[in-house]
């Protein structure tokens, strides 16, 4: 059976911390058991350190940090409406600069619906304004806080409550290619990262932090209840997403695209799909259709990388 991140970590020396020790998150937050979001948040904050200010819109990310007067993070956090993560980050950055606090990292942290759908305009505006901040999209591939409705980042064929038969009703094009959209918008740095590859996640976050201007991280963040899977499989499923090519890890830096995690011996997508009951209804034909989509997508990415190096 495919093990999760353990294989990767065991290659390192025993008894040593291979990622930053400092905890910027308290236990007792409100995430469901096995949720990917707090794993992503905890790793990201370990990477960025305590001189970080964050703003979050509606979504699971507004619930997980806890109920007033309790709070789970050790950095200042500002809550705001759903569609304005980029704009709020711009305002925080402007005021910090006006007050001479230029060394503080500003992070806008939003889900996939809050990013690729309702928050897209404000994120695009923040890039256009050249706001020096890091935008992080934790992607659980649907509107999970409202109970699994299809978003622009839901993969083709997935069950959601608004695509009860898979998404042939609408949402025909599958996940919006948000990273490429933002590159064309003029972002300074962008990368896909995955909670199952924590060292890479931390490295990409720190690279992003070192670059001035608008930066973007796209984190795959499995949702056990929405993906209809065993909560213990969160890291394992996340890892398979990359190993099957469903969620390739790559970055855009210095005007070039490159893979950050080479996929050797790519596994068939079925290994990823069968662990999640949101894909249970798929016929063998539909599964091979998804395999084709992934194959084409990777070929396309290869071509994009090739072209960017010319």
């Amino acid at each position: 059976m495919a093990r999760g991140g353990g294989e990767l970590i065991r290659e390192h020396m025993s008894g040593k911390f291979i990622i930053p020790r400092e905890e910027l998150m308290h236990p007792g937050h409100s995430a469901c058991p096995g949720c990917g979001e707090p794993i992503a948040m905890r790793l990201l904050l370990k990477a960025l350190g305590p001189r970080t200010v964050m703003n979050v819109p509606a979504g699971c990310c507004a619930v997980i940090p806890g109920v007033w007067p309790r709070y789970s993070l050790k950095i200042p956090l500002i809550d705001h409406a759903f569609e304005c993560t980029g704009a709020t980050s711009s305002g925080i950055r402007a005021a910090l600069d006006a007050k001479g606090m230029n060394d503080i990292t500003v992070v806008g942290w939003a889900g996939d619906g809050g990013t690729v759908d309702i928050g897209l305009q404000s994120l695009s505006g923040a890039i256009d304004r050249g706001t020096d901040f890091l935008y992080v999209m934790y992607d659980n591939e649907a509107y999970m806080n409202t109970g699994s409705q299809c978003s622009g980042s839901t993969p083709w064929g997935a069950w959601t409550t608004t695509t009860p038969g898979g998404n042939e009703i609408s949402h025909r094009t599958g996940k919006k290619r948000i990273l490429e959209m933002l590159v064309e918008n003029g972002i300074s740095y962008a990368a896909t990262v995955n909670i199952a590859f924590p060292e890479d996640l931390i490295k990409r976050a720190q690279i992003a932090q070192s670059i001035r201007g608008p930066k973007f991280l796209h984190i795959l963040s499995p949702c056990p209840s929405g993906w209809k899977m065993d909560p213990s499989k969160t890291v394992e499923v996340a890892k398979l997403a990359t190993q099957t090519g469903m969620f390739p890890l790559y970055e855009y830096r210095d005007s070039q695209y490159q893979f950050t995690e080479e996929i050797k011996d790519r596994k068939p997508v079925e290994e990823y799909l069968r662990l999640q009951r949101r894909f249970r209804h798929l016929s063998p034909t539909q599964i091979s259709e998804i395999q084709n989509l992934v194959d084409n997508r990777l070929r396309e990415l290869d071509a994009r990388m090739e072209a960017s190096r010319k």
């Binding site: 703003n55 705001h80 704009a87 305002g91 402007a94 005021a95 606090m101 404000s122």
Partner: peptide, 24 residues
Amino acid sequence: ARFMLMESEHSAMSALIGASYVGA
């Protein structure tokens, strides 16, 4: 003053809410 060109009024107000928290 820090002068921000916004892409909508909704964003303009949202940006100011963030800035105001910082004390501007």
